[in-house]
Amino acid sequence: MPYKKRQMDNMTKPKIIITIDTEVGEKAKFVKEGFEKFVMGKIGDENYGVPKIVDILNEHNIKGEFFVDVYEDTFFGKEKYASLCKYLDESGHGVQLHTHPSYAYDINRINMHEYSFEEQVRIISDGKGRIKKWIGKYPIAHRAGNYGANNNTLMALKGNNILIDSSYYYGHPNSKIRMSTVNDPLPYNQVMEIPVSIELKNWFISIIDSLKHKIPNKFDINSMNSQSMRNSIETYHSSYCIIFLHSSSFISRDQNSIEITGINQTALNAFSDLLDFLLKEKYAVTQFSKIPFTF
């Protein structure tokens, strides 16, 4: 059955998907205790990373989708990532694949689009195999680290039977996927691309931003305040709205991004406020496993 694009009108609310890129990241690759710092967000005896995000989600009876960079286990320990994925899965949250291939493959090639199709097939197979070993099931969705996917990535996902991707970030220089969409989901080779949601401005501002090579603003807890996030969601006209966090969203870092300097209380409050708003205004918050895409 062919995929039928949903027609949005002003009275239709988007379904919300809360996504969390769960990673130490490229900037902190060689940092001692990177997992504890930037995945767990350990400050003293408290964890302000994944555990805090899960606590806030659970308090609101909302489930999130955690894109886990499993290749970091090469640096920081397989047992840590295995325990993390089991914890997320047992809590009812989605465990999806996040690909920063430089951790396990080539330290000089950060983005997926820098690898051949055959290499990408192998990288994805390797990553989904780790998750299957740890939680007993394969991931169903993928996001490339740094948004650095290309169309070969989508074909490699199809070959690995991962049929949802959320790497495409319109206007971002690392995003090499070529599709005729901005925010609307669109199929490619039987893989459904659900783009990273961005703010759409009026045509004049968009042209000025483009001339300045300004990257469009995504729906990120760390780049939008509470009011801007609410306003943007209320004026968003696509079927799915991707909300963006990182495992380190609630912590502050030093200038080199390798040490924790404190709690990012603004981001923490913004996330709680957002979830309160979604519940109050009766937005449907969903997961990838519940998306009824047909082709």
Rank of each mutant, 00 (worst) to 15 (best):
P2I: 13
K4R: 07
M8K: 07
N10I: 10
K13N: 12
P14T: 04
I16F: 07
I16C: 09
I18L: 11
I18C: 09
D21I: 01
E23F: 12
A28W: 10
Y48T: 05
V50I: 05
N58A: 12
A82K: 11
E90Q: 15
S91T: 12
G92P: 10
V95W: 08
Q96H: 14
Q96R: 05
H98S: 15
H98N: 12
H100W: 13
I107F: 14
N111D: 05
S116V: 11
Q120P: 04
R122Q: 11
D126N: 15
K128G: 05
G129Y: 07
R130I: 04
I135H: 05
K137D: 00
H142K: 04
R143A: 09
A144W: 04
N152E: 14
T153F: 10
T153S: 15
T153W: 13
L154A: 08
L154W: 08
L163W: 06
M179R: 12
S180G: 07
V182K: 03
P185Y: 11
Q190N: 14
I194E: 00
P195V: 07
S206V: 11
I207C: 01
D209P: 04
N217F: 07
M224P: 01
R230M: 07
T235K: 14
T235H: 15
C241W: 07
S247F: 00
D254I: 10
Q255C: 03
S257Y: 14
S257Q: 13
I260T: 09
A270S: 13
F271A: 11
F271I: 12
D273C: 04
D276M: 05
L279C: 12
K280N: 04
S289I: 09
F295N: 02
F295H: 11
